[in-house]
Write a protein that binds this DNA or RNA. Sequence first.
RNA 1: CGAGGUGUGGCUCAGUCCGGUAGAGCACCUGGUUUGGGACCAGGACGUCGCACGUUCGAAUCGUGUCACCUCGACCA
Length: 572
Amino acid sequence: MYVSRMFLPTQREVPSEAEIASHQLMLRAGLMRKVASGIYAFLPLGYRAFRKVERIVREEMDRAGAQELIMPAVLPAETYMESGRWSVFGPEMFRLKDRGGREFCLGPTHEEPFTETVRNEIHSYRGLPLTLYQIQHKYRDEKRPRFGVMRSREFVMKDAYSFDRDEAGLDVSYQAMYRAYRRVFDRCSLDYIVVDADSGAMGGSGSQEFMVKSDVGEAVVAFCDACGYAANDEKATAVPAPEAKTGVLLPAERVATPNVKTVEDLMKFFGTTSKKFAKTLVYRTDDGRLVAAMVRGDRELNETKFHNLVGATELELASPEDVERVTGAAVGFAGPVGLKERIELYADLEVAEMENFVVGANDTDQHLKNVNVGRDFVPTKVADLRTVEAGDACPVCGRPLGQCRGIEVGHIFKLGTKYSKILHCNYLDEAGAENAMVMGCYGIGVNRTLAAVIEQHHDANGIVWPLAVAPYHVTVVPVMASDAAQMAMAKDIHYRLEEAGIDVLLDDRDERPGVKFKDADLLGIPLRVTVGRKYADGIVEYKERTAEKPTEMTPGEAVDKAVAAVREALRA
RNA sequence: CGAGGUGUGGCUCAGUCCGGUAGAGCACCUGGUUUGGGACCAGGACGUCGCACGUUCGAAUCGUGUCACCUCGACCA
């Protein structure tokens, strides 16, 4: 491809709307342009890279035995009404009506149409197992799209769905996907970890996320270097770390604490550590229940865990009015003892281990000290409710946990029979008995994966594509476009590479060399062959994007070296 | 959805407080000189200053409304 003919709008300046490296570089290198908030057009160079990722995904899905199909992006409301998700998705779903007033949506995820299709066509165990997938645009009207394609409202997802006779079959299908995912992200040269994830509202028996390590990731993961435990912080647990006990229960006592509301205020007032307090937080569920959660003063409540425990669809902090009604006190003085209304009260594991601690008295400007679980109050249930922190003890081996941020590029999920039961996706076994199919679902965010690659592979000058996803493998740069002999040699190298099946650019523009080198670096083309000052002696320069300096060699050697490097890198 | 911010040529931004002929750099076009890490000189084109209404002799600038975009938070099978 001749650069002079390409639609490749690069920008010298950093676009003001882009915050993170991948977003800035995707705009600067002319990979994409924004059409609306969270909606992007891929330009030729970006689309090439996108298709490289897509191809890797497709190859690995096919290798794992999954079969590709394509569902419509526009789906009728009925498809999601049967499962109940027409209402569950709420405003996040892009909805539209046809001319007859019938309701449709742009598919946010496709469990329903896949399940429906399989239900309609497969009725026997003979048709199982089956894994189907598509690479499709998905639509979610995110409250806050950000970071370019990292969190967008239209995005491309590879979503696969497996259908098995039983749990054992699901395990096999799931493992096949797990291995395929590892291969996909390995081939993309991503540094990632696989973490246990919350399977909460989706039900099901297990779920793992593929997290690309990155400071700009929106997810927080806890991991243990010693034993390999790793989990999304929504799910991560740690060994409780109770304070030493004296075994002497002191009598509970009311203390006037005017304007002492926060844990920090309390520490000052009582002159002790936050580990001697317990916070009581009141939440409201979507069905109108008020529920309370207690965690130790130095801990954070993990809303996901609480959410799952309470069994609500929606959960949010109760309004001040609700809190005042339940506690009979201003916000900040809630406690487990003497609540005005009987509400469910859940205590974290560590709260259950506390002794002679301080809680709100359910009376404005009053706290209770020397409170003890069992004697002064009995929680509805004691459970793990806190968010883990770096340094907490690993739940598997007890060593300190580390924490890092991650970009979720893939998610694999054992759905079980959640959808097959609701949607009556059944099969007859050998004995003629009807059973619900056991399902799994597996997603990869294709454009997010592309952004993650850039996030992990760039430097001050631009993108540094791994060969496997580079839009072009090699760029041939004649230093003086006006020198016909030089240009002829560059064209010859370009031709020979192209003939060898290499994706190659020829920067034939009549620009100063500095401009071409800067652009080559910005675009991140992994290999560069420069035809310059020594071309008359039959010498060109070969340089890897990451190398400090070029190496001199003959054009033939440069071609051979580039071809070998590309073939080596693409050997899947 | 809550809070904050920004909308001026393709890009980055100044001008707005204090109303008076719309600016700079980069990019673009023409000619010339250049040519190993984003050249230089000369000339040129490109704007209803997000939109609407209002105040005023006069609005990029003041007021009201509205839209878009960005950041933080909340939310996110």
